[in-house]
């Protein structure tokens, strides 16, 4: 086990994307193992939610900005991609970058309030912006109003149409892993350290030469781009989008993913996304009890497990390291 870890670490040092490429290859045969299309659909939804949670974690966990408007960005991504495809007849491969860019621009708008506001005020402003998006969509005829947009084309490459969950899996899975890869590397770089400085103390970050506003905006734009990408993938996966896909319920589910996984912990938010999506899908037949449990879970996690699963993992790892150190010392003393 340790040998494998060591090998991965060495590979990572010499060629960072390598472990991720291996991961992509490991995930490739999944559609062959799944029993039916529904299971693969589930996996696709999990990958999309991982993208959303990773994006939300950048701004919320690493930059410490309380945003509740993320679902609005998700909606913008999905609608942009769908509308560009339907009205201009372009392919998915143009619609996806368009959606990412448009959502990134919208992220600037959601991010600007963070210059002057923090905490609950910022939550209010972003809630207002995110919710305006949904209400605007459901009241505008051009955007499908309350009927939603249907017949969104499937992605295709040179005549191959990705019309089944088992096919579109090969688009969603690599993009999602690429997203995690980029996120991990950003957070490891100077930008990531600047985010953490802004989160822990904006004033001392500013005195240490971190351009607080710039990095807040960068965090918002990055997370918006993740949301836009996830939205676009979602639109082309289910081919039908409706304003009800982007309600505050979804926002709380998203929050739950990040909080359960642990704020500011990339691995944790992935675990959170997987768990919450699975529970969400398995309890779908009982929507009222499902949300009852989700709401209570969010409350109880915040109270009793504020660091989430990521915090538990970190604690486990650090304890193990500590125990090993002690053992080494004891061995040295015995010699």
């Amino acid at each position: 086990m340790t040998l494998i870890f060591e090998a991965v670490r060495r590979l990572n040092a010499s060629f960072p994307p390598a472990p991720w490429l291996i991961l992509v290859i490991l995930f490739l045969p999944f559609p062959l193992l799944a029993a039916n299309q529904y299971q693969i659909h589930l996996i696709n939804v999990i990958f999309i939610n991982i993208m959303l949670a990773t994006g939300l974690n950048i701004v919320k966990g690493f930059c410490g900005q309380v945003t509740v408007g993320h679902v609005g960005l998700y909606a913008i991504g999905a609608y942009t991609s769908a509308l560009v495809c339907i009205h201009f007849g372009v392919s998915f491969w143009i619609a996806l970058p368009t959606a990412i860019i448009v959502t990134g621009l919208a992220g600037i708008i959601i991010g600007i309030p963070s210059f002057r506001l923090e905490g609950a005020y910022l939550a209010l402003a972003t809630l207002g912006l995110g919710e305006s998006v949904r209400i605007f969509i459901s009241a505008t005829e051009f955007l499908g109003a309350t009927f939603g947009i249907s017949n969104i084309p499937y992605p295709e490459i040179g005549g191959i149409v990705f019309d089944l969950p088992s096919k579109i899996y090969y688009i969603i899975m690599p993009i999602s892993l690429l997203g995690i890869f980029i996120s991990v590397n950003i957070l490891r770089s100077g930008i990531g350290r600047a985010f953490k400085a802004v989160r822990d103390d904006p004033v001392s970050a500013a005195t240490s030469g971190v351009a607080v506003r710039k990095y807040k905006l960068i965090a918002f734009v990055f997370s918006a781009m993740y949301a836009g990408c996830a939205g676009s993938l979602y639109a082309h996966l289910v081919t039908y989008i409706h304003p009800d896909n982007f309600t505050i319920l979804i926002m709380v589910t998203l929050l739950l993913m990040v909080v359960l996984g642990g704020l500011g912990h990339v691995g944790g938010s992935i675990i959170g996304a997987i768990l919450v999506t699975l529970i969400y899908e398995l309890t779908r037949p009982y929507p009222e009890y499902q949300m009852l449990v989700f709401g209570m879970a969010a409350v109880l996690i915040v109270i009793y497990m504020p660091k989430g699963i990521g915090g538990l993992i970190d604690r486990f790892l650090s304890t193990r390291k500590f125990i090993r150190l002690r053992e080494d010392k004891a061995d040295a003393a015995a010699d």
Partner: peptide, 20 residues
């Protein structure tokens, strides 16, 4: 952030309590 998330969770819980 804790109380904000807690508030949203509670809102969801109460809404679905009313649903039940």
């Amino acid at each position: 952030m804790g109380i904000i998330i807690c508030g949203f969770g509670m809102a969801l819980f109460l809404q679905n309590l009313a649903y039940v």
